[in-house]
Nucleic acid binder design. Structure first.
Lengths: 236, 236
DNA sequence: ATGGCCTCCTTACGATGTAAGTATTACGCT
DNA sequence: AGCGTAATACTTACATCGTAAGGAGGCCAT
């Protein structure tokens, strides 16, 4: 009985199980809740047991980034995508790719913060970047322009641009007293707030549509890059 | 003697002295080195003494952001700057302002990471944003467009855009063996690296000029915003 | 002198990541 | 079946962190 119970119950700990549990904790309670002890508890195991499968916590964090980009890879359809894009429409293909990555980020809001804290290039992340470069290069951009564009896109390339990191309530519109003191010390900011809120009266709190903001900034960047690509061609 | 020594030596602890020492630690040894005990040691005091002047460590971190933006305010010339800008040249004024903020960030490389970890709006930071809005509004942009533009600019508005966070060596060009494996798994990324490095052979390591990248992305954004401003006017 | 503040110090606690050493389990071999 | 060995999980302990709670010394007005 002891034997059968044990063989039935005991699911062996693996790198994958650890990473899956870690991701679940981050999804549910945020990155701060992801401690070795909490992780072990969720796995039905003692904290130090994890160290047999992963060298340290940083390896877990890097593994989480790896998993996230694996999910992004599944979402955006891998490297075969660039073949589907008609020549010249790199613009739309890249747009779709980035918005695909963004969908994954929205499912796992802790990824942006994690990426900024650990500056590493895990394999699945490298492949994502590689696919992005492929789209642009197939579209006729020079590597030099692509290189600059990646810098210009910055974290937007991964489907986020800082606002994802902030919680929703931090963008809440200020109330009456706050606005009064604001008008004194930061008059232009106050004026903008009033103007924007008045234009869209049903949004007294959470007055920014993140998705709209994101696409606005994204399109400016994409337009600017496209314009520079034309210039580059004309010069040759 | 005891009396004179004490009155002469004893410089009273103040919020300002604490923040100055904290900034010095961050400048010298990075944000991780800034612990309450280390800070106390540098001040010639015990750790808990600091808590009489500041409620907790978060208050110190927020104070550091405040100081940084005070420094930026001094660098970019305060709110009087918008009056100096000729009408219509908001573009250049904003550019100068952002590059001024960037100079401060380069002096204190820990500020970007700190700003991302703490999502608060301290007074001096609010004034910086307010001045930025003033420049754009004086230039004829609608508050709606300004609002969108601030989102589009994102952290670039503060003079950085993620690359500041990374250390120099993380951008080092990969060597022979690395490149070989890269060609297999991330061919386009490898191709771009080779192309870019070949174009500029004297930069085998640190092959990206941060300042150039920054201005490239910045100009794309500014051009795109300007174009949208024209559209907005034409529609009226 | 004495009481009361302002300022700083002492001690201690609960988290956290993890080094070092130990126990247990699973499995191939006889 | 019994045993040895390697793979796996556990126990204990430590350094470091932020900070709660209360105490100690100096200063000034009375």
């Amino acid at each position: 009985m002891t034997v059968s119970r044990k063989t039935a119950e005991r699911v062996p700990l693996t790198r994958e199980r650890v990473l899956a549990a870690a991701g679940a904790i981050a999804d549910a309670d945020g990155l701060d809740a992801l401690t070795m002890r909490r992780l072990a508890e969720d796995l039905g195991v003692e904290a130090m047991s994890i160290y047999y499968h992963l060298p340290n916590k940083d390896a877990i964090l890097d593994g989480l980034i790896e998993s996230a980009f694996a999910e992004i890879g599944a979402e955006v359809g891998g490297s075969a995508l660039s073949a589907l894009a008609p020549a010249g429409s790199w613009h739309g293909a890249l747009r779709a790719r980035i918005l695909g990555a963004r969908r994954v980020m929205l499912r796992h809001p802790w990824v942006p913060a994690l990426m900024e804290s650990r500056s590493v290039l895990v394999p699945t992340m490298a492949r994502y970047i590689d696919g992005t470069i492929a789209i642009m290069h197939d579209g006729g951009l020079s590597f030099d322009l692509i290189h600059h564009s990646l810098h210009a896109l910055g974290s937007r390339m991964y489907g986020f641009a800082q606002e994802l990191t902030m919680d929703g309530d931090s963008d809440a519109a200020p109330g009456g007293d706050d606005l009064a003191t604001m008008r004194e010390f930061v008059p232009h900011l106050a004026a903008m707030l009033e103007d924007v809120v008045h234009d869209d009266p049903d949004s007294t709190l959470g007055w920014c549509d993140d998705q709209t903001e994101f696409e606005f900034g994204l399109d400016i960047l994409l337009d600017g890059i496209a314009r520079r690509s034309v210039d580059e061609r004309a010069r040759r």
